[in-house]
Design a protein around this nucleic acid. Structure first.
Lengths: 132, 132
DNA sequence: CATATAATTAGTATAATACTAAAATATATA
DNA sequence: TATATATTTTAGTATTATACTAATTATATG
Protein backbone atom coordinates (compact mmCIF):
# COMPACT_ATOMS: atom_id res chain seq x y z
CA UNK A 1 0.00 0.00 0.00
CA UNK A 2 1.08 3.64 0.17
CA UNK A 3 1.77 4.38 -3.44
CA UNK A 4 2.88 7.60 -4.99
CA UNK A 5 1.63 8.29 -8.47
CA UNK A 6 0.89 11.22 -10.75
CA UNK A 7 -2.34 12.15 -12.43
CA UNK A 8 -1.38 10.67 -15.79
CA UNK A 9 -0.12 7.52 -14.15
CA UNK A 10 -3.48 7.28 -12.39
CA UNK A 11 -5.31 7.67 -15.68
CA UNK A 12 -3.16 4.99 -17.24
CA UNK A 13 -3.81 2.53 -14.42
CA UNK A 14 -7.55 3.14 -14.62
CA UNK A 15 -7.54 2.83 -18.40
CA UNK A 16 -5.65 -0.45 -18.24
CA UNK A 17 -8.10 -1.92 -15.78
CA UNK A 18 -11.21 -0.67 -17.47
CA UNK A 19 -10.15 -1.75 -20.93
CA UNK A 20 -8.79 -5.10 -19.89
CA UNK A 21 -11.35 -6.87 -22.05
CA UNK A 22 -8.86 -7.03 -24.91
CA UNK A 23 -5.06 -6.94 -25.08
CA UNK A 24 -3.72 -3.43 -24.76
CA UNK A 25 -0.61 -2.31 -26.58
CA UNK A 26 1.23 0.96 -26.43
CA UNK A 27 -0.72 2.55 -29.24
CA UNK A 28 -4.02 1.63 -27.58
CA UNK A 29 -2.94 3.38 -24.42
CA UNK A 30 -1.85 6.41 -26.42
CA UNK A 31 -5.29 6.44 -28.06
CA UNK A 32 -7.23 6.07 -24.83
CA UNK A 33 -5.22 8.69 -22.99
CA UNK A 34 -5.16 10.94 -26.06
CA UNK A 35 -1.41 11.32 -26.07
CA UNK A 36 1.19 10.54 -28.72
CA UNK A 37 3.07 7.26 -28.78
CA UNK A 38 6.37 8.58 -27.44
CA UNK A 39 4.60 10.22 -24.53
CA UNK A 40 2.76 6.98 -23.80
CA UNK A 41 6.06 5.15 -24.12
CA UNK A 42 7.62 7.29 -21.39
CA UNK A 43 4.58 6.92 -19.16
CA UNK A 44 4.54 3.15 -19.56
CA UNK A 45 8.27 2.97 -18.92
CA UNK A 46 7.81 4.88 -15.68
CA UNK A 47 4.99 2.61 -14.56
CA UNK A 48 7.03 -0.45 -15.45
CA UNK A 49 9.94 0.77 -13.36
CA UNK A 50 7.53 1.20 -10.45
CA UNK A 51 6.33 -2.37 -10.92
CA UNK A 52 2.80 -1.21 -11.56
CA UNK A 53 2.50 -2.56 -15.06
CA UNK A 54 4.01 -5.34 -17.06
CA UNK A 55 4.76 -5.67 -20.76
CA UNK A 56 4.76 -9.13 -22.37
CA UNK A 57 5.08 -9.35 -26.14
CA UNK A 58 3.94 -5.77 -26.37
CA UNK A 59 0.80 -6.46 -24.35
CA UNK A 60 0.58 -4.18 -21.36
CA UNK A 61 -1.23 -5.16 -18.20
CA UNK A 62 -1.39 -4.26 -14.54
CA UNK A 63 0.73 -6.26 -12.13
CA UNK A 64 -0.79 -7.55 -8.90
CA UNK A 65 0.58 -4.43 -7.28
CA UNK A 66 -0.94 -2.32 -10.04
CA UNK A 67 -4.32 -3.90 -9.51
CA UNK A 68 -4.10 -3.20 -5.79
CA UNK A 69 -3.45 0.44 -6.60
CA UNK A 70 -6.40 0.47 -8.97
CA UNK A 71 -8.57 -0.98 -6.21
CA UNK A 72 -7.58 1.78 -3.84
CA UNK A 73 -8.14 4.47 -6.44
CA UNK A 74 -11.56 3.20 -7.39
CA UNK A 75 -12.56 2.70 -3.78
CA UNK A 76 -11.64 6.32 -3.07
CA UNK A 77 -13.32 7.42 -6.27
CA UNK A 78 -16.64 5.79 -5.57
CA UNK A 79 -16.72 6.64 -1.92
CA UNK A 80 -16.09 10.31 -2.61
CA UNK A 81 -18.44 10.28 -5.56
CA UNK A 82 -21.17 8.98 -3.31
CA UNK A 83 -20.54 11.71 -0.76
CA UNK A 84 -20.69 14.40 -3.42
CA UNK A 85 -23.78 13.10 -5.21
CA UNK A 86 -25.55 12.67 -1.86
CA UNK A 87 -24.97 16.38 -1.36
CA UNK A 88 -26.61 17.15 -4.65
CA UNK A 89 -23.63 17.32 -6.97
CA UNK A 90 -24.41 16.05 -10.45
CA UNK A 91 -22.75 12.70 -10.97
CA UNK A 92 -20.72 13.69 -14.02
CA UNK A 93 -19.45 16.78 -12.27
CA UNK A 94 -18.67 14.68 -9.22
CA UNK A 95 -16.77 12.18 -11.32
CA UNK A 96 -14.62 14.84 -13.00
CA UNK A 97 -13.97 16.48 -9.66
CA UNK A 98 -13.04 13.23 -7.94
CA UNK A 99 -10.69 12.11 -10.72
CA UNK A 100 -8.43 14.95 -9.69
CA UNK A 101 -8.11 13.73 -6.12
CA UNK A 102 -8.95 10.03 -5.77
CA UNK A 103 -5.36 8.89 -6.31
CA UNK A 104 -4.18 11.30 -3.60
CA UNK A 105 -6.37 9.89 -0.85
CA UNK A 106 -5.05 7.93 2.05
CA UNK A 107 -6.61 4.47 2.08
CA UNK A 108 -7.19 4.42 5.83
CA UNK A 109 -9.25 7.60 5.60
CA UNK A 110 -11.19 6.23 2.67
CA UNK A 111 -12.00 3.04 4.56
CA UNK A 112 -13.35 5.08 7.44
CA UNK A 113 -15.45 7.19 5.13
CA UNK A 114 -16.74 4.06 3.47
CA UNK A 115 -17.77 2.52 6.78
CA UNK A 116 -19.47 5.70 7.91
CA UNK A 117 -21.57 5.58 4.75
CA UNK A 118 -22.86 2.19 5.80
CA UNK A 119 -20.59 0.23 3.46
CA UNK A 120 -22.73 0.74 0.36
CA UNK A 121 -22.45 -1.95 -2.25
CA UNK A 122 -22.87 0.31 -5.25
CA UNK A 123 -21.80 3.74 -6.31
CA UNK A 124 -24.18 6.26 -7.91
CA UNK A 125 -23.69 4.59 -11.28
CA UNK A 126 -24.55 1.19 -9.95
CA UNK A 127 -21.06 -0.26 -10.23
CA UNK A 128 -19.91 -2.33 -7.27
CA UNK A 129 -17.76 -0.32 -4.93
CA UNK A 130 -15.43 -2.89 -3.51
CA UNK A 131 -13.53 -4.97 -5.98
CA UNK A 132 -11.48 -7.42 -3.96
CA UNK B 1 -13.85 31.74 -9.41
CA UNK B 2 -11.93 28.89 -11.00
CA UNK B 3 -8.29 29.28 -10.09
CA UNK B 4 -5.48 26.98 -11.04
CA UNK B 5 -2.65 26.65 -8.60
CA UNK B 6 -0.01 24.15 -7.56
CA UNK B 7 0.61 22.61 -4.17
CA UNK B 8 3.45 24.95 -3.28
CA UNK B 9 1.47 27.94 -4.44
CA UNK B 10 -1.34 26.75 -2.20
CA UNK B 11 1.01 26.48 0.75
CA UNK B 12 2.33 29.96 0.09
CA UNK B 13 -1.15 31.47 -0.06
CA UNK B 14 -2.14 29.75 3.18
CA UNK B 15 1.11 30.80 4.86
CA UNK B 16 0.62 34.41 3.81
CA UNK B 17 -2.88 34.51 5.18
CA UNK B 18 -2.14 32.69 8.39
CA UNK B 19 0.96 34.73 9.19
CA UNK B 20 -0.51 38.06 8.23
CA UNK B 21 -0.07 39.32 11.79
CA UNK B 22 3.30 40.81 10.86
CA UNK B 23 4.87 41.98 7.60
CA UNK B 24 6.14 39.07 5.55
CA UNK B 25 9.23 39.39 3.39
CA UNK B 26 10.76 36.90 1.04
CA UNK B 27 13.02 35.36 3.65
CA UNK B 28 10.08 34.85 6.00
CA UNK B 29 8.23 32.93 3.33
CA UNK B 30 11.32 30.86 2.61
CA UNK B 31 11.54 30.09 6.33
CA UNK B 32 7.88 29.18 6.72
CA UNK B 33 7.80 27.02 3.62
CA UNK B 34 11.23 25.57 4.45
CA UNK B 35 12.71 26.38 1.07
CA UNK B 36 15.74 28.45 0.09
CA UNK B 37 15.45 32.11 -0.87
CA UNK B 38 15.86 31.64 -4.64
CA UNK B 39 13.16 28.98 -4.65
CA UNK B 40 10.86 31.27 -2.70
CA UNK B 41 11.76 34.06 -5.09
CA UNK B 42 10.57 32.03 -8.06
CA UNK B 43 7.40 30.97 -6.28
CA UNK B 44 6.57 34.53 -5.30
CA UNK B 45 7.30 35.75 -8.82
CA UNK B 46 4.87 33.19 -10.20
CA UNK B 47 2.17 34.20 -7.73
CA UNK B 48 2.75 37.85 -8.52
CA UNK B 49 2.33 37.22 -12.23
CA UNK B 50 -0.96 35.50 -11.46
CA UNK B 51 -2.08 38.52 -9.47
CA UNK B 52 -2.44 36.45 -6.33
CA UNK B 53 0.12 38.31 -4.26
CA UNK B 54 1.57 41.75 -4.16
CA UNK B 55 4.98 43.04 -3.14
CA UNK B 56 5.33 46.55 -1.73
CA UNK B 57 8.69 47.62 -0.31
CA UNK B 58 9.60 43.99 0.04
CA UNK B 59 6.47 43.24 2.04
CA UNK B 60 4.46 40.45 0.46
CA UNK B 61 0.73 40.15 0.90
CA UNK B 62 -2.27 38.56 -0.74
CA UNK B 63 -4.26 40.60 -3.24
CA UNK B 64 -8.05 40.67 -3.05
CA UNK B 65 -8.02 37.89 -5.58
CA UNK B 66 -5.47 36.00 -3.49
CA UNK B 67 -7.66 36.30 -0.42
CA UNK B 68 -10.63 34.99 -2.37
CA UNK B 69 -8.56 31.97 -3.34
CA UNK B 70 -7.53 31.47 0.27
CA UNK B 71 -11.19 31.60 1.27
CA UNK B 72 -12.06 28.87 -1.19
CA UNK B 73 -9.14 26.71 -0.12
CA UNK B 74 -9.94 27.01 3.54
CA UNK B 75 -13.63 26.43 2.96
CA UNK B 76 -12.80 23.22 1.12
CA UNK B 77 -10.25 22.31 3.75
CA UNK B 78 -12.57 22.65 6.70
CA UNK B 79 -15.55 21.10 5.01
CA UNK B 80 -13.58 18.02 4.02
CA UNK B 81 -11.82 17.91 7.36
CA UNK B 82 -15.20 17.82 9.04
CA UNK B 83 -16.38 14.96 6.84
CA UNK B 84 -13.25 12.95 7.59
CA UNK B 85 -13.22 13.57 11.33
CA UNK B 86 -16.92 12.73 11.52
CA UNK B 87 -16.00 9.37 10.05
CA UNK B 88 -13.47 8.80 12.77
CA UNK B 89 -10.29 10.05 11.12
CA UNK B 90 -7.91 11.68 13.57
CA UNK B 91 -7.92 15.42 13.01
CA UNK B 92 -4.19 15.73 12.37
CA UNK B 93 -4.29 12.90 9.86
CA UNK B 94 -7.34 14.50 8.27
CA UNK B 95 -5.58 17.84 8.02
CA UNK B 96 -2.51 16.37 6.33
CA UNK B 97 -4.69 14.38 3.97
CA UNK B 98 -6.87 17.33 3.05
CA UNK B 99 -3.94 19.67 2.43
CA UNK B 100 -3.13 17.54 -0.57
CA UNK B 101 -6.53 18.06 -2.17
CA UNK B 102 -8.30 21.16 -0.83
CA UNK B 103 -6.88 23.45 -3.51
CA UNK B 104 -8.09 21.04 -6.20
CA UNK B 105 -11.72 21.11 -5.19
CA UNK B 106 -14.41 22.76 -7.22
CA UNK B 107 -16.07 25.47 -5.17
CA UNK B 108 -19.60 24.59 -6.28
CA UNK B 109 -19.16 21.03 -5.01
CA UNK B 110 -17.72 22.28 -1.75
CA UNK B 111 -20.65 24.61 -1.22
CA UNK B 112 -23.06 21.72 -1.69
CA UNK B 113 -21.11 19.57 0.73
CA UNK B 114 -21.10 22.40 3.21
CA UNK B 115 -24.85 22.84 2.98
CA UNK B 116 -25.48 19.14 3.35
CA UNK B 117 -23.49 19.24 6.57
CA UNK B 118 -25.92 21.77 7.94
CA UNK B 119 -23.65 24.77 7.36
CA UNK B 120 -21.55 24.25 10.48
CA UNK B 121 -19.98 27.35 11.90
CA UNK B 122 -16.79 25.73 13.12
CA UNK B 123 -14.40 23.08 11.94
CA UNK B 124 -13.09 20.32 14.22
CA UNK B 125 -10.46 22.68 15.58
CA UNK B 126 -13.00 25.30 16.47
CA UNK B 127 -11.95 27.81 13.81
CA UNK B 128 -14.78 29.51 11.96
CA UNK B 129 -15.41 27.84 8.62
CA UNK B 130 -16.56 30.70 6.48
CA UNK B 131 -14.34 33.72 6.35
CA UNK B 132 -16.13 36.26 4.18
C1' DC C 1 9.96 -9.39 -50.16
C1' DA C 2 7.58 -5.11 -49.78
C1' DT C 3 4.59 -2.51 -47.36
C1' DA C 4 2.12 -1.18 -43.42
C1' DT C 5 1.90 -0.94 -38.54
C1' DA C 6 3.91 -0.35 -34.17
C1' DA C 7 7.59 0.65 -31.10
C1' DT C 8 11.52 3.02 -30.00
C1' DT C 9 15.12 6.61 -30.02
C1' DA C 10 16.65 11.19 -30.45
C1' DG C 11 15.92 15.63 -29.83
C1' DT C 12 13.34 19.51 -28.05
C1' DA C 13 10.16 22.05 -24.98
C1' DT C 14 7.65 23.67 -20.87
C1' DA C 15 6.26 24.05 -15.96
C1' DA C 16 7.12 23.34 -11.29
C1' DT C 17 10.26 22.42 -7.98
C1' DA C 18 14.77 23.07 -5.75
C1' DC C 19 19.52 23.87 -5.01
C1' DT C 20 24.40 26.56 -4.69
C1' DA C 21 27.18 30.37 -5.46
C1' DA C 22 27.72 34.87 -6.49
C1' DA C 23 26.37 39.52 -7.18
C1' DA C 24 23.68 43.33 -6.16
C1' DT C 25 21.09 46.03 -3.15
C1' DA C 26 19.45 47.60 1.00
C1' DT C 27 19.69 48.42 5.87
C1' DA C 28 21.83 49.06 10.14
C1' DT C 29 25.48 50.05 13.19
C1' DA C 30 29.81 51.78 14.62
C1' DT D 1 29.67 58.22 6.27
C1' DA D 2 31.83 53.89 5.86
C1' DT D 3 31.68 49.38 6.79
C1' DA D 4 29.31 45.35 8.06
C1' DT D 5 25.26 42.66 7.90
C1' DA D 6 21.05 41.30 5.95
C1' DT D 7 18.21 40.54 2.09
C1' DT D 8 17.19 40.10 -2.59
C1' DT D 9 18.17 38.96 -7.04
C1' DT D 10 20.67 36.74 -10.86
C1' DA D 11 22.98 32.98 -12.93
C1' DG D 12 23.54 28.50 -13.46
C1' DT D 13 22.27 23.71 -12.72
C1' DA D 14 19.24 19.68 -11.73
C1' DT D 15 15.13 16.69 -11.53
C1' DT D 16 10.46 15.01 -12.57
C1' DA D 17 6.44 14.96 -15.24
C1' DT D 18 4.47 16.08 -19.22
C1' DA D 19 4.33 16.35 -24.32
C1' DC D 20 5.64 16.99 -28.96
C1' DT D 21 7.95 15.95 -33.94
C1' DA D 22 10.81 13.43 -36.82
C1' DA D 23 13.37 9.59 -37.73
C1' DT D 24 14.59 4.94 -37.17
C1' DT D 25 13.96 0.13 -36.07
C1' DA D 26 11.26 -3.82 -35.52
C1' DT D 27 7.37 -6.67 -36.52
C1' DA D 28 3.65 -8.39 -38.96
C1' DT D 29 0.80 -9.00 -43.10
C1' DG D 30 -0.23 -9.44 -47.74
Amino acid sequence: MEYNITRKERDCIVALYENSGFPLRLFNIADILKIKAPTAYELVKRLESKNIINKTNGIISLTTYGISIYDEIIMAHRTLELILTKSGVNSDTACEQIERIDYLMDDVSVQKLFKSLGQPQTCPHGKPIKVN
